[in-house]
Design a binder for these strands. Structure first.
Length: 441
DNA sequence: GCATGATCATGC
DNA sequence: GCATGATCATGC
């Protein structure tokens, strides 16, 4: 190592040095050894940055990357949405969750806080076919310390995760359990993953890591922490309660009344997303900009109940491609991702007189058992697509989910492994299943 | 009346 | 231009 380029014990010095990356790629910023450049796309940019830019090789995973400065280095990808506007490509993994030790931790003495109390986050532009060392750092490095406004939420998230492990439910953890801080899967995955031992249960658990959810990262990127405070997120009220309050004034009102209140009306009788748009407008209180939900990665769904309490329709999810699903793992699938989220149901109901009203809102996480059933349906779909993409799991084959078309019209098709074209399809949660969920409370 | 098939307007 | 959430339409 040559003469010191910066002082590893000084946060300011490290940050100043990090700014040298802004607008550049790693390959432009330093002379990389030849062998590396020959490697195609693969490789972990974060690791390369540590080794070749900062010239450090962090050892212990318990300590920050710059132990003397107490600073943890993170490198994360962003996507370009519009000129100058970037969004997180994915969650930012902070640290593996140690199931054994977390049960005895408090937030203040937690391993997470020890390692990630102060972070330096570098943002590079993710582009699919560009090698990692040619990816450009597009934003200034961000020095991150949990903002006061976000602390109650993140701390609450952490405590929820700890409580899950304490009650022997590490294997039931899902990202939807929490708001900003998630427990994401991290590790081998797939068939031959070795499950980890957890303290208060004999069930093995998949390895998981603490992560910041993409939408929280987006919030950081936008630098809107203060605005989140204004929305009431930072108050002693829980995050969910704050959102619930938004809907409260409209509960019990008819759709026409709400529509009039918001001065937002159905333009076309065929507008199938109308009620969703109504809900979006309630949330945003007029401004249909970023909502609290987006930041927390909450999945909002509108549900319309018939007078008997049964949902009129099943619940659709994004479409899948026949040629992709056959090579995908459940854990990597979009459907799995969605089902791990926290849902916010906006429930409308037609009353005895035939008038439809906003009945209530409800937060919900899909129970572990049902996620496993959804996985079964997904695996079965994958299996059948390989054989005959026109014969997929129907509603009566599972109490949780089924597969059905989703497209613009009969011409909206995709190629199948059989070499034909077939109507686009997506996964649905059965309306009977949704009905059950709403029944028990 | 339900399960399945087909398609809509919208926002990004 | 197209994926999306959602609802309409049909057949049994």
């Amino acid at each position: 190592m040559g003469k010191a380029k910066y002082d590893q014990s000084s946060v300011d010095s490290i940050v100043d040095f990090a700014k040298g990356l802004t607008g550049k790629t790693l390959a432009e910023a330093v002379d990389l050894p030849k062998g590396i450049e020959n490697k195609r796309n693969r490789g972990n940019l974060g690791l390369l940055i540590e080794n070749y830019y900062f010239e450090i090789s962090p050892g212990s995973s318990q300590e920050p990357d710059f132990p003397q400065a107490g600073l943890e280095l993170k490198t994360t990808g962003v996507l370009k949405k519009a000129p100058g506007k970037y969004v997180a490509k994915e969650r930012l993994v902070l640290k593996m969750i140690n199931f054994t030790s977390i049960v005895d931790e408090t937030w203040e003495n937690s391993e997470l806080l020890k390692k990630c109390k102060l972070m330096l986050i570098l943002f590079y532009l993710f582009e699919k076919d560009v090698a990692v060392f040619d990816r450009r750092f597009v934003l200034d490095p961000l020095v991150y310390e949990i903002p006061d406004a976000d602390l109650p939420i993140i701390r609450d998230d952490w405590e929820r995760i700890r409580e899950m492990v304490r009650s022997g439910k590490a294997h039931e953890l899902s990202e939807g359990d929490t708001n900003y801080l998630g427990a994401c899967r991290k590790g081998a995955g797939g068939m031959n993953e070795t499950l980890l031992i957890q303290p208060h249960s004999s069930s093995g658990a998949k390895s998981r890591a603490f992560s910041f959810k993409p939408n929280y990262i987006n919030k950081l990127i936008e630098g809107h922490s203060q605005e989140a405070g204004k929305l009431g997120v930072s108050s002693s009220k829980s995050f969910e309660e704050a959102t619930r309050l938004r809907f409260r004034p409209f509960i019990g009102k008819t759709i026409d009344e709400i529509s009039a209140d918001l001065n937002y009306f159905k333009q076309s009788p065929n507008h199938k997303g109308f009620l969703r748009e109504v809900a979006v407008r309630i949330l945003a209180a007029g401004k249909k900009s970023v909502s609290e939900l987006d930041k927390a990665g909450i999945e909002m769904k509108t549900i319309r109940l018939k007078a008997d309490g049964i949902p009129r329709e099943s619940m659709s999810f994004p479409g899948f491609k026949f040629l992709e699903i056959v090579n995908e793992k459940w854990e990597e699938s979009n459907f799995c991702d969605k089902l791990e989220k926290k849902f916010l149901f906006i429930v409308f109901r037609t009353d005895a007189a035939g008038v439809e009203r906003l009945e209530r809102v409800k937060y919900w996480n899909m129970p572990y058992k049902d996620r496993m059933e959804a996985q079964r349906v997904w695996e079965e779909t994958k299996r059948r697509v390989k054989i005959d993409a026109t014969n997929l799991p129907k509603q009566n084959e599972s109490y949780v989910a089924h597969v059905r078309p989703k497209g613009r019209n009969g011409q909206d098709t995709l190629p199948t492994p059989q070499g034909r074209q077939h109507l686009k399809q997506c996964f649905w949660l059965n309306n009977s299943y949704i009905g059950k969920i709403l029944e028990d409370d």
